[in-house]
Design a protein around this nucleic acid. Structure first.
Length: 319
DNA sequence: GTCGATGATTGAAC
DNA sequence: GTTCAATCATCGAC
């Protein structure tokens, strides 16, 4: 019964339409692959599964045919024997039952070997998909932008993860993996990531400045958080502004767009980060507490990223 | 081939 | 369930 269920689930037995592809899709989903990649492997899996299915059905047909042929043969023999000796219907029934039992055990073996074949195929398919592929440049950029603009609290919420996954063309679990790896590696070697952090700070500031400039042109209040247009990148630039504000000596208000451009201009001409101007790097390690865990800051980011221990945090999303 | 970067996995802790 | 930390396995530049 379990074998039957498995064969049904794998699309080997039961109705042909969709069975195989559903199993292939399930296998692909289980492997965490993106919906776009591995279409060749996907069709490969489907083709192999169809092959197994075909073999299974033809073998099953053969067994059924052999079973009925053998039953007929035995019945004929018994009929012939009945001329010489009396044969009760019960005896005939018993013989037929024995034959059916034998053939059903053979069928069971067929089902078992088919299951094994499917399992092997499945594991090979999954193994192939486990091969690591680097994310594309754009995806990495999107993830890095989010990470560095939420440096005080780099724990994206489920919604944010989903949005990032969609933007990057990867799965939510891949986003989680990426953030897990990034947090650890950033923490382990902040110095190494300083340059990258500055790079993304400048990028974020440019975006913010652009938005602010557009907002100014439209005669509307130019605040960085006002022009996000639903993009988390621009709506949560708290950490970047933390650095920029420190340069400007303004610890409270958001830097106006013109000043931002000026700061940006200065920033892009600095090679060693912001230490010389502010006394601390643009992204300072103080976001990690004494225990080397992420801590909340009294910066704009903490407004959008509620404080709390990792895991309980529901960081902000722009949507 | 080597080596650093990086995505995935695993097990422990919460 | 999530996150951290260690580790593995692969990619890509050299």
């Amino acid at each position: 019964m379990r074998l039957d269920n498995m064969l049904l689930a794998e699309g080997v037995s039961g109705p042909e339409k969709g069975g195989g592809s559903a199993a292939a899709a399930a296998a692909a989903a289980a492997a965490g692959g993106s919906p776009n990649d591995g279409s060749i492997e996907h069709s490969d899996y489907r083709a192999k599964l169809a092959q197994i299915r075909q073999i299974y059905h033809s073998e099953l047909e053969k067994y059924e045919q052999a079973c009925s042929e053998f039953t007929n043969h035995v019945m004929n023999l018994l009929r012939e024997q009945s001329r010489t000796r009396p044969i009760s219907p019960k005896e005939i029934e018993r013989m037929v039952a024995i034959i059916h039992r034998k053939f059903s055990s053979i069928q069971m073996q067929l089902k078992q070997s088919t299951c094994e074949a499917v399992m092997i195929l499945r594991s090979r398919f999954l193994d192939a998909r486990r091969k690591r592929r680097n994310f594309n440049k754009q995806a990495t950029e999107v993830l890095n932008e989010y990470f560095y603009s939420h440096l005080s609290n780099p724990y994206p919420s489920e919604e944010a993860k989903e949005e990032l996954a969609k933007k990057c063309g990867i799965t939510v679990s891949q986003v989680s993996n990426w953030f897990g790896n990034k947090r650890i590696r950033y923490k382990k070697n902040i110095g190494k990531f300083q340059e990258e952090a500055n790079l993304y700070a400048v990028k974020t500031a440019v975006d913010a400045a652009n938005v602010s400039a557009h907002a100014s042109q439209a005669n509307s209040p130019a605040t960085p958080n006002s022009g996000s247009s639903g993009s988390y990148t621009l709506s949560h630039t708290g950490d970047a502004y933390l650095g920029l504000r420190s340069l400007n000596g303004d610890g409270v208000s958001v830097t106006p767009a013109v000043q931002q451009v000026d700061i940006l201009h200065r920033a892009t001409h600095l090679t060693a980060g912001y230490e010389d101007l502010s006394g601390s790097p643009l992204y300072t390690p103080h976001r990690l507490d004494a225990n080397n865990s992420w801590q909340d800051n009294t910066n704009p980011s903490s407004i959008t990223s509620p404080p709390g221990p990792p895991g309980s945090i529901h960081s902000d999303t722009s949507s």
